[in-house]
Nucleic acid binder design. Structure first.
Length: 783
DNA sequence: CGCAGGCGGGG
DNA sequence: GTGTACGCCTGCG
């Protein structure tokens, strides 16, 4: 029979000694299904040294003790970094032994390289069969039994799966989890502290809450496993579920002799690639990965993400922090329950909001839905490239450890400090990808010999690297495909006859494409990249510098005042005719597109690069790089700078208003009018605490948390306040929940964190240090 | 006082 | 475990 189904997840297992690929899916009849494919062999490619015959190499490999796992050897014509390459493909029937085989083969003197052994069996399948996760496929299948597996039907594949030409998303059953751990002190420990409340919201509109009995959470856990089976979700959302929730649940369950068998095959959750937890047959998605990727979110919490999305309505609900749980459990249990309920509902809502995007990112990169968000940028770009490589007959290079060699980046101009009226910012459109396309910058077009006809090559300025003009290189084609498809999508989206459901999918798809295109240059300079070639990254920035330099020269020729520029942007006086001259010069002479990005009524620059603020033509305050947008300044300082910038930019002549604002601000802070939480400073612990070379405030605060039983790991953020008392700053940095408002050192906050950013803004606005000095001591005293 | 460590943001 | 350029606070000698 023929079957059409959507791929939710891919896995592999060995059944009756034969390895097989498992496709978990949803059929077009909306059944949850399992499809087994035993026709695919794990494989690797072997490239012989020059002069070694493929026959002799095959017999040498056959002579190794691994011969019994090799099922086929075949000479294939491939390319490697663009060069035609003859390789031998060895198919094997023991995917688990592929690395051992690869090492043995690699040690043969005849062997130049062993390739693609480092790609997992299931992913080799997806690449080779050209099948995408979250895509619809069609295949001939035969029904088979599915005892013990929670699906409606199971099949075995009789034909190769073919991608079907449809891009809708089946109606997925979604579930959101939230757990509250009852710890008397410090980080909850699954060997000690039970799960007090579990809240489970599902896309059928249901919210279930499970509560432990006394201090016993065993029933809660077994009920959860049962509920999971009943609701049978396709997608499970959590927040911090990869690092916390799943391990905790599993550990607690196992202590009670319960198996947390929530997978569709009855399995427990298990650690998988990219720090992701896999629940078989379902897509487990940790929304923390989403929060982490949105740079506007400074503190990556569920509430932070919800607020950013406008999902948590004002004062809807307040998060109960871990250190408060114990006392809530004692005296405010219903509030705690309500928090859990709200958190699970909110988690579900956020998950739903991002589902199309996750699906499209998964389809674009080929990374399965459950870990596409866990994979970092470099790996997403790389998976996109790996798919392109396979379709071009390119062998996939291995990861190689290399020494780090720095290279030059972009040009940043020193701004003209002060206030500037009537400014526009111009942005080169996708500068780096455009340059890579325009100059055919790619690992396979780079030529290292200098004995060539220079007319056939693009030669990078300053650095002199040479790239073949034709044929188009790997990067050029991969990027063109992305950019052209995205442009077509955007055109389609703007059409009026598109239905809302389809528009959402197309919008998500073009966003995913933008993400990969924007990350492509960074990938080329990543030392861990499979296609890393330093000259490619170095040449791209060199052409970037040349391009903006020519644009700067053009400004001078045209007589257009330039106030600032960074990498691919120029801030110029808004004189439309001159701006048009500049734009057309850039388009015709530099072969790059450029657009007007933002028109400002007024912009303020200090002496510093990468920091400015402006009021746009439509009246918005935009702050870039300044303390007001930095997550490591306390709220009080950020809000103050934003407010002052607003005053200055809206009416620069009103010096009095600015100075009066500062006077009253200082007074309000000193008198304790600001809420305590506005003084909390959040900083990331970037490495093991013992690795720090100097005593830093946030590190000492972290140590104080550890003494109180809190676990601190690299990547965690520590929130601390500075209290009055003797000693260095690091002696007085206390985790915010270990002290209170009465101890705050307001003088420190004012003189070191609040005032300096304000003074820099005032200075730039022409309100001199003397103006302030004159008032200091008389009107107000801030030191 | 100058330099280094550390962090987080910009394009 | 995408890149480089940059500013600012603090510790340290």
């Amino acid at each position: 029979m023929s079957l059409s189904f959507w791929i939710l997840d891919v896995a592999s297992e060995r059944r009756n000694r034969t390895p097989e690929v498992i496709l978990w899916g949803i059929s077009d009849g909306n059944e949850r299904i399992l499809v087994r494919d035993r026709s695919f062999s794990a494989h690797l490619y072997v490239v012989p040294h020059e002069g070694v015959s493929t026959e002799s190499l095959i017999s040498a490999v056959r002579g190794l003790s691994f011969n019994d796992i090799i099922t086929n050897a075949e000479v294939v014509r491939k390319r490697y970094f663009g060069n035609p390459t003859e390789a031998i493909r060895f198919d094997i029937n023991e995917p688990e032994d592929i690395e051992k085989l690869a090492r043995a083969v690699d040690s043969l003197p005849q062997v130049k390289m062993v390739l693609e052994h480092d790609i997992r069996y299931a992913m080799q399948y997806m690449l080779e069969r050209n099948v995408l996760p979250c895509g619809w496929v069609e295949a001939d299948v035969e029904a088979m039994g599915h005892q013990g597996i929670r699906v409606d039907s199971a099949y075995s594949l009789l034909s190769k799966p073919r991608m079907a030409g449809r891009d809708d998303i089946p109606k997925l059953r979604q579930m959101a989890l939230h757990a509250i751990y009852l710890s008397r002190r410090g980080t909850p420990n699954p060997d000690r502290d039970p799960i007090a409340i579990m809240s489970i919201a599902t896309s059928d509109g249901d919210v279930k809450q499970l509560v432990m009995e006394g201090e016993d959470d065993s029933k809660l856990l077994s009920d959860f496993v049962e509920l999971c089976g009943q609701k049978d979700p396709d997608v499970i959302y959590g927040f911090r579920s990869n690092r916390g929730l799943w391990q905790y649940l599993t550990r607690r369950a196992n202590r009670s002799g319960i198996s947390l068998s929530v997978g569709r095959g009855g399995e427990e959750p298990h650690m998988s690639v990219y720090g992701h937890v896999s629940v078989s047959g379902r897509a487990n998605v940790d929304l923390f990965d989403i929060a982490n990727e949105i740079t506007d979110i400074k503190l990556e919490t569920l509430e932070g993400l919800a607020d950013y999305l406008g999902i948590r309505r004002e004062d809807d609900w307040e998060a109960v922090e871990q250190q408060e749980v114990y006392s809530y459990w004692g005296s405010r249990r219903s509030d705690l329950m309500e928090f859990g309920r709200q958190a699970s509902v909110c988690t579900l809502e956020i998950g739903k909001r991002f589902l199309e995007y996750l699906v499209e990112l998964s389809r674009l990169t080929g990374i399965p839905l459950d870990h596409v968000m866990a994979a970092s940028t470099g790996f997403r770009v790389e998976w996109y490239l790996m798919r392109e490589a396979v379709s071009r007959g390119e062998l996939i290079p291995p990861r190689i450890e290399r020494p780090y060699t720095p290279y030059l980046g972009a040009i940043v101009l020193s701004p003209k400090p002060g206030l500037h009226d009537n400014i526009v910012s111009l942005d080169f459109k996708s500068m780096y990808p455009s340059l890579m396309i325009a100059y055919n910058i790619s690992p396979d077009t780079l030529v290292r010999s200098d004995d060539v006809d220079v007319n056939e090559y693009n030669i990078a300025p300053e650095v002199g690297h040479m790239f073949r003009r034709s044929p188009p290189g790997f990067y050029k084609e991969a990027l063109l495909k992305l950019i052209e498809t995205r442009d077509a999508l955007k055109a389609k989206i703007s059409r009026s006859d598109i239905k809302e459901d389809e528009r959402k999918i197309l919008e998500a798809r073009q966003m995913a494409m933008k993400l990969i295109a924007n990350a492509s240059y960074g990938y080329t300079g990543w030392i861990g990249a499979r296609w890393y070639v330093r000259e490619v990254a170095e040449s791209t920035t060199a052409w970037g510098r040349a391009s903006i330099s020519k644009a700067i020269d053009a400004c001078k020729r045209i007589g257009l005042e330039l106030v600032y520029g960074d990498t691919d942007s120029l801030f110029v006086r808004n004189e439309p005719e001159k701006v048009e001259l500049l734009l057309s010069f850039i388009r015709s002479e530099l072969g790059l597109d450029i657009k007007i990005d933002t028109a400002y009524k007024r912009v303020l620059f200090t002496e510093a690069k990468k920091r400015y603020a402006g009021i746009t033509e439509d009246g918005r305050l935009e702050v870039v790089g300044l303390e007001a947008v930095r997550g490591d300044y306390p709220n009080v300082a950020r809000k103050a700078q934003r407010a002052l910038l607003e005053i200055i930019l809206r009416d620069p002549s009103n010096k009095k208003a600015a100075l009066e604002f500062i006077r009253s601000l200082v007074e309000r802070i000193s008198s304790g009018s600001y809420p305590y939480k506005d003084f909390v400073i959040w900083k990331e612990i970037s490495k093991g605490l013992e690795e720090y070379k100097v005593k830093a405030a946030h590190v000492e605060a972290a140590k104080r948390m550890m003494e109180e039983g809190w676990e601190i790991n690299p990547g965690d953020k520590v929130g601390y306040v500075v209290v009055k008392g003797p000693g260095q700053l690091y002696d007085r940095s206390i985790p915010y929940f270990m002290t209170d408002k009465d101890h705050l050192d307001y003088e420190y906050y004012i003189s070191s964190l609040v005032m300096p950013p304000l003074l820099r803004a005032l200075e730039a606005a022409g309100i001199s240090a003397q103006d302030i000095q004159r008032r200091k001591g008389s009107l107000f005293d801030f030191t």
